[in-house]
Design a protein around this nucleic acid. Structure first.
Length: 303
RNA sequence: CCGAGGGUGGCAGAGUGGUCAAUUGCAACAGACUGUAAAUCUGUCGGGCUUGUCCCUACGGGGGUUCGAAUCCCUCUCCUCGGA
């Protein structure tokens, strides 16, 4: 059985993914499915770079999904995202349109394109809470005791991974090792990638930051805090701009430090994105001016 | 001009006779990643190759003491502070 077709537009931050996605959506009667771990949250449009005007072409608005679906004080995971994305993509296909997954959150993108199957577990907030409160050493010891085989293999200094492994063991009553990572793609994706040199990305990020400061990015965060849409803690988890601007508002860092921290951290994020996407042989990297993506998509659809 | 302190690897900054090619942080480079992912974590980071308890070059320049110096002494030079 042939899988339904879809497009994935990926790449590091500030390289013009949205634009490419929207162009293609217009030409091929598509709809955008955002794969951005921050844009799922409402508010904070400047901070998370929603750029909603990019979805307008002339008077026509390209439909987009999975942006602004949740209040920022809610927890959301890649598994939640995957579920939503599958639903959305299926609906788009049913409408006879072309789904275009556009995003720079590699974990979100791949959970969908690869069809990762996450262990099905009930949420147990008590267990989660307990596990999260342990010190690194306690986590290591606990896992070593419960599941020595998993402990052998795991990234032991990584608290997040230890937490997850422990949570799985404690909630399921089974071994972490029993949940072998599985993947079964649900769609046939054509991968398109947009990328620039690191120097160019740096320049673009810098410029974009300036524009967003100018546009009131700090005030945006202050407003969200003031209206209690999210706590400082929620914002800290939400990624670079919300986090560091919160620090700034709390007086922990000054404006210059804020700018430096943001630039620095956004760049290292871009490098991590490049590590993910760079090794993916399936990605068709799109140079700036060419009409190539159009041809690639046309051929792909015809097949 | 006098007095005091100081010049350490791309930067910041430890080290004050051997275990120092030099703690640490940042930057840089590479990488991991299957329910927090713009998260979290790992490795490399003076040069060379025959990759070794190897060689070379290095803690402002030069000289000296010592078996041995980033570390002690002399001198030159530069910086900072205080006094004229």
């Amino acid at each position: 059985m042939r899988l339904p077709k879809a497009i994935a537009v990926v790449g590091p931050t500030a390289c013009g993914k949205t634009k490419l996605g929207v162009d293609l959506a217009k030409k091929f009667n598509g709809e955008i499915v955002s794969a951005d771990s921050r844009q799922i949250y409402r508010h904070l449009d400047l901070c998370t770079g929603k750029d909603k005007e990019d979805y307008l072409i002339g008077k026509k608005k390209i439909p987009y999904h999975l942006i602004d679906i949740l209040e920022p004080d809610r927890e959301f995971s890649s598994a939640d995202f995957q579920k939503e994305a599958f639903k959305t993509i299926n609906k788009i296909i049913k409408r006879g349109k072309l789904p275009i997954l556009v995003g720079g959150s590699p974990f979100y993108v791949y959970s969908v394109t690869e069809g990762w199957s996450f262990p099905k577990l009930d949420h147990d907030p008590k267990i989660r809470d307990r596990v999260r409160k342990m010190s690194l050493e306690e986590k290591q010891q606990a896992l070593e005791k419960i599941d020595p085989a998993a402990y052998e293999k795991i990234d032991r200094n990584n608290p997040r991974r230890l937490e997850r492994a422990l949570e799985i063991c404690l909630v399921s009553g089974k071994k972490f090792e029993d949940f072998k990572p599985k993947a079964s793609p649900k769609f046939d994706f054509l991968f398109l990638g947009k990328i620039h040199s690191l120097d160019t990305i740096k320049e673009r990020v810098k410029k974009r930051l300036e524009e967003r400061f100018e546009a009131g990015m700090i005030e945006e965060v202050a407003g969200v805090l003031k209206r209690k849409k999210a706590s400082a803690k929620d914002l800290e988890k939400m990624g670079l701009e919300p986090r560091f601007i919160t620090y700034y508002l709390e007086g922990r860092i000054n404006k210059q430090e804020l700018e430096d921290l943001l630039l620095k951290n956004i760049i290292s994020f871009a490098k991590r994105q490049i590590t993910w996407f760079g090794k993916d042989q399936r990605i068709n990297w799109i140079e700036d001016s060419s009409k190539e993506p159009e041809n690639l998509v046309r051929d792909f659809i015809k097949k």
